[in-house]
């Protein structure tokens, strides 16, 4: 059995760890709040673009754009994978990376068939270690990323689709459901076929949809708007992923704190047992000594 002093030191160090995890939990909670606020701020922008693009796609049937059409032959697929820069956030990264890795292994036979655009250090290291083709990477994003920070990577990715380097682009990230639950999500980014489908579906509000004047014309606007929209989708997913990251970190740190609590009470129990055992032994020795004398 460990000595009294040993147990005491372990209680001390566990308490210190608990303080740290507790602090990290609270920091993550605050950051989660901010990230959610940021995602809310972004909402109007995205829904507006969506509305306008959908109404153009609906209003003029003859308008088509390569970004709205499914390609006949898929030669190369792009994957955008959003991970975090740091660990200590439970299964946030590992779950996502495992699923992405398996999907890619199932879908593709050779490395020429896909390319990866990785956001976050953990994901980059993961794919680098496995020698998978990373086309672009970005690490060290701020906790509350600005649009300008990812504009470049979003733009080039969309450009690669336009240039037919990629024939379709998927985005993998953790979708924020609540502070304690995130879901690994795969979303098809390009081509924007879902947008067309949605525009074709009759919606209740669509009866009030206005027919716009297009200046200079609908095609030019689509030309400008669709890349914007795709980029904003990437940014939206990033904000979503960031909120998930803080949620995941918060719950990971909370369970670490709870574990530390349990550990401390267990250790305190064994400390008290050891202390009692020591006292009992001492009494026994005294009684034994007294008996020997009489």
């Amino acid at each position: 059995m460990a000595s009294l002093k040993d147990i005491k030191t372990r209680i001390g160090s566990t308490k210190k760890t608990k303080q740290i995890t507790k602090a990290m939990e609270m920091v993550s909670a605050a950051k989660l709040n901010r990230a959610q606020g940021k995602a809310e701020q972004f909402q109007p922008y995205q829904s507006k673009i969506r509305e306008v693009v959908a109404s153009i796609a609906k209003g003029s049937e003859d308008v088509s754009h390569p970004m709205l059409q499914e390609r006949q032959e898929i030669r190369k697929t792009g994957y955008i994978v959003i991970t975090s820069d740091r660990g200590l956030c439970g299964a946030y990264n590992s779950g996502l990376l495992r699923e992405t890795y398996q999907l890619i292994q199932e879908r593709h036979n050779s490395e020429d068939e896909y390319g990866l655009v990785v956001i976050g250090k953990v994901g980059r290291d993961f794919f680098k270690k496995r020698n998978m083709p990373i086309v672009q990477e970005i690490v060290g994003l701020a906790d509350q990323p600005e649009y300008a920070e990812i504009k470049n990577i979003a733009e080039t990715t969309v450009q690669m689709f336009t240039d037919e380097v990629f024939d379709e682009v998927f985005i993998h990230y953790n979708h924020f459901i609540s502070a304690i639950s995130q879901k690994v999500t795969e979303a098809k980014l390009l081509p924007l076929t879902s947008l067309v489908e949605e525009a074709e579906e009759p919606k209740e509000e669509s009866s009030g949809r206005l027919s716009y004047l297009y200046e200079p014309d609908a095609e030019t606007i689509l030309e400008k708007l669709l890349p914007h929209y795709a980029e904003s989708l990437i940014y939206g997913s990033l904000l979503d992923a960031k909120a998930s990251e803080f949620g995941a970190r918060m719950s990971a740190m909370r369970s670490a704190t709870d574990n530390a609590d349990n550990r401390i009470s267990e250790l305190t129990l064994s400390y008290n047992r050891a202390r009692q055992a020591a006292i009992t032994q001492e009494i026994n020795e005294i009684v034994g000594g007294a008996a020997a004398q009489s």
Binding site: S211, Y212, L213, Y214, P216, I221
Partner: peptide, 16 residues
């Protein structure tokens, strides 16, 4: 394409 001014009650319009 150039400068554009919008006054209230303009027709619905979309422009880059």
């Amino acid at each position: 394409e150039g400068e554009l001014g919008i006054l209230p009650r303009h027709l619905p319009l979309v422009t880059p």
